[in-house]
């Protein structure tokens, strides 16, 4: 029985399995954090100034179109195999989602709200940090959530990129028995759902209360 074998494989190799899970999580975390560090400031700046918006949106779409395996392949040619290689590919995977969501969240604050803030004498920085970014939080978090799930569900390609300390050590090695494959695939799915659920809780916690209320009147 494949299922029994799969379970036995996990039960017999706890250190290896936990190590691979930890490796997958660390790799994903580092990639997502880097993507956030680039995408949120950039998206906020573009959304706030409304300059280069077309460039950013199209750039994000181009990034989104890049096949991860192709990035890994070209990366091997340009900067070799290893952690950096897979990390770059994963950052490119998550970046466009977070970038567009941040941009849209900031840019789509009601024009009247921004004008009122300006008219009241709030500086550009105060408008960005006190009005636009809080307004964008739900969208930014949604982008981070989707990006993280993508990254976790793709991080196993680390195996192909020459960084084996992840679930990719099994998933990208088709010579191994199906039972091991099944075990790691299920783990990968569970991991993605768990992190998604966790981020949903974070999202609820950081969303300003006023943003959750459905208006009673169409004012």
């Amino acid at each position: 029985m494949v299922l029994v074998d799969a379970w036995r494989f996990v039960a017999d190799n706890p250190a290896r399995v936990l190590g691979d899970i930890a490796g997958q999580l660390v790799l994903s975390l580092v990639s997502v954090v880097i993507a956030i560090a680039i995408a949120v400031p950039l998206g906020a700046a573009i959304g706030h100034t409304r300059r280069f918006a077309l460039l950013a949106v199209n750039g994000a779409n181009v990034l989104r179109a890049l096949p991860t395996l192709a990035i890994i392949a070209i990366g091997i040619g340009l900067y070799g195999v290893g952690f950096i290689n897979i990390m770059v590919a994963l950052v490119i995977l998550a970046l466009p989602l977070i970038l567009t969501n941040t941009y849209v969240g900031v840019a789509e604050v009601e024009p009247g709200t921004v004008e009122a803030a300006r008219g009241m004498g709030m500086t550009g920085w105060q408008i960005l940090t006190q009005v636009e970014l809080p307004h964008a939080v739900p969208l930014i978090m949604a982008g981070i959530r989707t990006g993280t799930v993508f990254v976790i569900a793709t991080a196993y390609l680390a195996g192909t990129a020459g960084y084996p300390h992840t679930l990719g050590s099994v998933i990208t090695n088709p010579t191994l028995p199906v039972s091991q494959l099944l075990a790691y695939t299920v783990i990968a799915v569970l991991l993605a759902f768990a992190v998604d659920g966790l981020l949903l809780i974070v999202q609820r916690a950081v969303t300003p209360a006023g943003m959750k209320i459905v208006p009673v009147t169409a004012a």
């Binding site: 024009p111 009247g112 709200t113 004008e115 009122a116 008219g119 009005v131 307004h135 943003m211």
Partner: peptide
Amino acid sequence: YVIQQVGLFPHM
């Protein structure tokens, strides 16, 4: 400054 759209900050 008061405008027709009011422009209250929805998150506050």
